[in-house]
Design a protein around this nucleic acid. Structure first.
Length: 564
RNA sequence: GCACCCGUAGCUCAGUAGGAUAGAGCGUCCGCCUCCUAAGCGGAAGGUCGCGCGUUCGAAUCGCGCCGGGUGUGCCA
C-alpha cells in the first residue's frame, strides 16, 4: 500500500539508482490533474550530464509500470504517476472497514510515557478564553499520543501557591462572608481580590497582613490552611464543570504547593555540583553567553517558578520515567523554559532534551489585552453557553423535529468553540471574536460535524446491510470518491505529523478537507437508489468518511453527533 | 539596545526539510432544494507572498540586510 515506495523501486530499476534516494525525491503534485505522485528529474542533470526533460523521457521509456499505477506521463522534467483509481479506492475502503475506529492509529509509542502539562489553572481566578488554548491543545495532544500507542499523563499544574493567597485570606477575613463565597465561588473570590488591591493602595499595612497570612499557610497554620483549601476546592469544583463540557481530563492535579517541599533537594544538588553563584544577593545558575542566568533563589531566600519547575521535572522523571515531557504554555514564557531546560542539561541529565515547551500565541480582545483584575475578560463558560444557545436556535429553525436537541446543541456548540481554537498553527496570536466563533458556515466545527451526521443519516436510510452486501465498485470509479479515498489514506500520516510537531491543527485541517470531499461526493452522486450493489459501494464511501471524521474530531476533542 | 516569534487576497489563515499556473474559508456578487440533511454544492471578483540583495536550473520557502507588528529581557507566574 505504500505507493511512494513502489514507484521509487520502479524508477530506481529504470535509472539504475538507489531506491531510498529516489523515494526521497518523489513528491505529491499540488494539482491532481498532474498525477498522484511526481518525480522531478532536475537534480539528476549533473550525474547524467543531460537536460532534465531528456532524463525524464529516458527513465520513462525503461520504466516498468508497477501494479496499482495506471500510467506514467512525462511533462517537462517531471514523470507523473497516476494511481489506478478503482483498485486504490477498493484498497483504502477495505482498510478502513477492517480497522474501524482504530484506523490511523499506531503503536509507535508503545511502552512510552508522555507527560503533558496543560491548562494549569490558578486557584481563585476565573476560567476565561485566555485559558482555552492551553486546555484544548493539551487535551488534544493527550488524545493524539494515546492514539499512537503512547501512555499520556495529563497534568494540571495548579497555580496554588504565592502571596496572592495571603491577600485573598486577608480580604476574606475583613470583608468576606461564607455564604457569599459558597454561592458565588470564584466570582466572590475575585471580587475580594480586586477589592484588596484597591484598598491596599490606600492602606499599605494590608500588604503586611497578607504576607502574614501567607506565612501562616507556609507554616501549616490550621485556620489559614483550611480557608486556603476551601478556596481551592471551590475553584476546582467550578472549573470541573468546564472540563466536563470540554471532555478534558487530567491524571494529576499536583501543582505548585505540591512541590513546595521538593525544591530543597534540587537546590542541594545544584550546590554540590557548584553551579549556584551568588549574584546581586540572589543565587543563580550561569548559562553561558547565549542565555541570561537562571535565578534559583531570590535575595530573600525564597524560591521562584524556575525552582518549582525544576523540582516538578525531577519528580515527573522519577515518577513517570517520561519519554517526553510537554509544557503547553504560552510563548511569553519561551525564555523561562529555555533557561531551566538548560539548567537540567548542565546538571548532566541527558533527558533534558526530552523536555519540550509547546508554546502558543496570545488571545486578545477587540478592546485590548485580557486582564482579570481590570475585568477585561470573556469567560469561557459564557462563550460555551452562547455557542450552545445559538446552536439550539439553529436546530429549532432547521430541524425542529430532532431528537435529543439539548445534547446535539451541546456537542455542536461546544465543538464549534474547540474546533475554532484548534484551526491554526499554535504560534499564531488571535483576537477573540464572538462573530467568528459563532459562525457555523464554511470550514468550522459544525461543518465537519454536519458532514458526519449526513453520512450517518445515509446509513439509516438504507434498508439492507450494505456492509455485507455485494458491492459494485465500478459505481464509485469517479473522481469524487477517489478524492475521499486519498484523504482517508493520508489520515494516518497526518496524525503522526500532528504528534511529531505537537500541532493538533494538522488533524483539524485534514478532516475539514475530508468533509469537503465527502460533501462533493454526496452532491455529485446519488448514494441510495434501486441498484443494491452500487448503493452498497457508495454507502461504503460515506461510512468510511464518517469513521475517519469521527476519529479525527475525537482527536481534537470534538464530538460527532449522529444527527443535527 | 539585545534575543525570539510573526508578516501570503478586504478579513482569518493553509502552503515554508526549494519544484510545475500561489490555495482555502469568511465577507461581496451570481447560480443550485417537486430528489438521500441547503449548518450543503458550484461559479465570479480579489495577491508587488512586507522590501532589497544573494544562493540555485528553480525561492512564499534557504542566507544576509532592512521595514512593520508582537513577546521577552535577573529576583511575578
Amino acid at each position: 500500500m505504500d505507493y511512494k515506495q513502489i514507484i521509487a523501486q520502479a524508477i530506481a530499476k529504470a535509472a539504475d539508482m538507489a531506491a531510498d534516494e529516489i523515494e526521497a525525491m518523489i513528491e505529491v503534485p499540488a494539482d491532481t490533474s498532474m498525477g498522484d505522485y511526481a518525480f522531478p528529474c532536475f537534480r539528476l542533470a549533473k550525474t547524467f550530464r543531460k537536460a532534465p526533460p531528456l532524463i525524464a523521457a529516458d527513465i520513462s521509456e525503461k520504466l516498468e509500470i508497477p501494479k496499482g499505477i495506471s500510467r506514467a506521463e512525462v511533462v517537462g522534467a517531471y514523470i507523473n504517476f497516476f494511481l489506478d483509481n478503482q483498485s486504490f479506492i477498493e484498497d483504502v475502503l477495505g482498510d478502513v472497514l477492517e480497522k474501524g475506529e482504530e484506523y490511523g492509529s499506531a503503536d509507535i509509542g508503545k511502552g512510552r510515557n508522555v507527560c503533558i502539562d496543560y491548562s494549569s489553572i490558578n486557584i481563585a481566578k476565573p476560567f476565561h478564553i485566555g485559558h482555552l488554548s492551553t486546555t484544548v491543545i493539551g487535551s488534544s495532544l493527550y488524545k493524539i499520543y494515546n492514539f499512537l500507542g503512547f501512555h499520556s499523563i495529563g497534568i494540571n499544574h495548579l497555580g496554588d501557591w504565592g502571596t496572592q493567597f495571603g491577600k485573598l485570606i486577608t480580604a476574606y477575613k475583613l470583608w468576606g462572608n461564607k455564604e457569599d463565597i459558597e454561592k458565588n465561588s470564584i466570582n466572590a473570590m475575585l471580587e475580594l481580590y480586586v477589592r484588596f488591591h484597591d484598598e491596599a493602595e490606600k492602606d499599605d499595612s494590608l500588604n503586611d497582613t497578607a504576607r502574614m497570612w501567607f506565612k501562616k499557610i507556609e507554616d501549616g497554620d490550621e485556620e489559614a490552611l483550611s480557608i486556603f483549601n476551601w478556596f481551592k476546592e471551590l475553584t476546582l469544583k467550578e472549573v470541573k464543570i468546564i472540563y466536563d463540557m470540554l471532555d478534558v481530563h487530567f491524571d494529576s492535579y499536583d501543582g505548585e504547593s505540591f512541590y513546595n517541599d521538593k525544591m530543597q533537594p534540587v537546590i542541594d544538588e545544584l550546590n554540590e555540583k557548584h553551579m549556584l553563584e551568588l549574584s546581586e544577593g540572589a543565587y543563580v545558575v550561569r548559562l553561558g553567553d547565549e542565555l541570561p542566568p537562571c535565578i534559583i533563589l531570590k535575595s530573600d531566600g525564597a524560591t521562584l517558578y524556575s525552582t518549582r519547575d525544576l523540582a516538578a521535572a525531577f519528580y515527573r522523571k522519577k515518577t513517570y520515567d517520561f519519554y517526553k515531557c510537554l509544557y503547553v504554555v504560552a510563548y511569553q514564557q519561551d525564555l523561562h523554559f529555555k533557561q531551566w531546560f538548560k539548567v537540567v542539561e548542565l546538571m548532566g541529565y541527558t533527558w533534558a532534551k526530552d523536555l519540550e515547551h509547546v508554546s502558543f500565541g496570545m488571545v486578545s480582545l477587540e478592546g485590548g489585552t485580557l486582564s482579570t483584575r481590570k475585568g477585561n475578560v470573556v469567560l469561557l463558560q459564557e462563550v460555551l453557553e452562547k455557542a450552545v444557545e445559538k446552536t439550539r436556535a439553529i436546530i429549532e429553525e432547521k430541524s425542529p423535529g430532532l431528537e435529543g436537541k439539548d445534547d446535539v446543541a451541546k456537542t455542536v456548540g461546544v465543538g464549534a468553540v474547540v474546533f475554532d481554537a484548534l484551526r491554526t498553527a499554535r504560534i499564531k496570536d488571535s483576537t477573540f471574536s464572538f462573530e467568528r466563533v459563532l459562525n457555523f458556515d464554511g470550514e468550522t466545527g459544525p461543518y465537519v460535524q454536519y458532514t458526519y451526521a449526513r453520512c450517518q443519516s445515509l446509513k439509516k436510510r438504507c434498508d439492507f446491510d450494505f456492509l455485507t452486501a455485494e458491492k459494485d465498485w465500478q459505481a464509485i470509479d469517479n473522481k469524487e470518491a477517489f478524492a475521499v479515498a486519498k484523504l482517508l489514506e493520508g489520515f494516518g500520516e497526518v496524525v503522526i505529523k500532528a504528534c511529531e510537531k505537537n500541532e493538533p491543527y494538522f488533524i483539524t485541517k485534514h478532516i475539514t478537507e475530508l468533509a469537503k470531499a465527502m460533501n462533493r461526493f454526496y452532491f455529485e452522486h446519488r448514494v441510495i437508489d434501486d441498484d443494491k450493489a452500487a448503493t452498497a459501494a457508495r454507502l461504503t464511501v460515506a461510512h468510511c468518511a464518517g469513521v475517519v471524521i469521527k476519529t479525527g474530531l475525537s482527536l481534537i476533542g470534538v464530538g460527532a453527533p449522529e444527527r443535527m
